[in-house]
Amino acid sequence: MGADQSAFEQPLYPQSKDPICATEPRFCLPQTVQLRLREKLWSFSGDDFKITDASNREFVYFQCQGRVFSLREKKVLRDNMGVPVLNMKEQLFSFTDKFKVYAGEHSDREICKFNSKLTFFKAKLSSQFIDVISGRPRLITLKGDWREKRCVIYLGEPKQGGIPIARIFRPLTGRSLLFGVDDYIIEIAGGVDIALAVIMCIALDEHSRDSN
């Protein structure tokens, strides 16, 4: 795990001058932020999350709700006013594009899709999409240790010079020990779409559950 550990400790590169945006420009904040994804206890779907500022849990950024009886497992991400930002559907019979992300709650406008791969202790999710600000194609890649839940999100492919723009880790908490729920901390560089980073973390969580 040495290589992953050193990658996890690399500095994040702000993208404020050339924002990375898959959803809406309002989610590309100028400063680095730390978010906490807190899984709700006793949720009906079993994987609902509340996303807050990591140091101030009263400051809510998003809510994520699962749809347990959906034909394709569906997650809806809402902003702090309850407005649907995106929804993610799991492609149950796909071995490549495991998750597809659409605008709003019911729209068919595809934002991106995540190609996912879990082998032994390694995780990789990648996505290509058209940036809504620049109109250019973008590639982002998540890599790391999925059992430890310590991962880095890169702009580009890390083996081809991709640079770190966000990192994810799972803190050990009393809730996780007692109830088996997962909380995550995501640190996201300025200028990077925080809604995209959040739904990528949730996709990682969902895929790791499927693999257990």
Score class of each variant (00 low, 15 high):
D97F: 01
L139Y: 01
K149W: 03
L92W: 15
H106R: 15
I130M: 10
I133R: 13
V132Q: 07
Q91N: 15
S126E: 05
F114C: 01
M88H: 07
F120E: 12
I163D: 00
K113R: 12
G135L: 09
I133H: 03
E90P: 10
K143N: 06
T96A: 09
K159Y: 11
S126V: 05
P158W: 03
K117P: 07
G162Q: 00
G161A: 08
E90N: 13
S107K: 05
K122N: 10
F93M: 15
E105N: 11
L92T: 15
C151A: 12
D131Q: 08
C112M: 12
T96R: 13
K122Y: 10
S127G: 04
L155K: 03
L86G: 06
P158M: 05
F99G: 04
Y154A: 06
D108A: 13
F120Q: 13
L92K: 14
I130F: 14
W146H: 04
R138D: 02
F129L: 02
I165E: 09
R136W: 09
L125K: 00
V85G: 02
F129H: 05
K159S: 15
D145W: 06
I140R: 03
F114H: 06
M88F: 10
N115Y: 10
V101H: 06
T96P: 03
D145R: 10
G162V: 02
I130E: 11
L118P: 03
F99M: 05
K117L: 12
K124M: 08
A123Y: 06
S107Y: 09
F99H: 06
N115R: 12
S94N: 13
S134G: 06
K113N: 02
S107A: 11
L125V: 03
F114W: 09
G104M: 05
E105Q: 14
I153F: 02
Y102I: 02
F120H: 13
G156E: 01
S126W: 05
F121P: 01
K89Q: 15
F93I: 15
K159D: 15
W146N: 00
F99D: 04
K149S: 08
L155T: 02
F99R: 00
H106A: 14
E148T: 03
F93Q: 15
K143L: 01
K124D: 06
V101D: 04
Q128N: 10
F120S: 14
K100C: 08
I133Q: 11
E148Y: 08
R147F: 13
W146V: 00
K149C: 08
K149R: 11
P164Y: 00
N115C: 08
M88Q: 07
F121Q: 12
C112L: 14
V101G: 01
K113Y: 04
E90F: 13
P158A: 07
I140W: 01
F93N: 14
Y154S: 03
K124R: 14
L125Q: 08
I165C: 08
C151T: 02
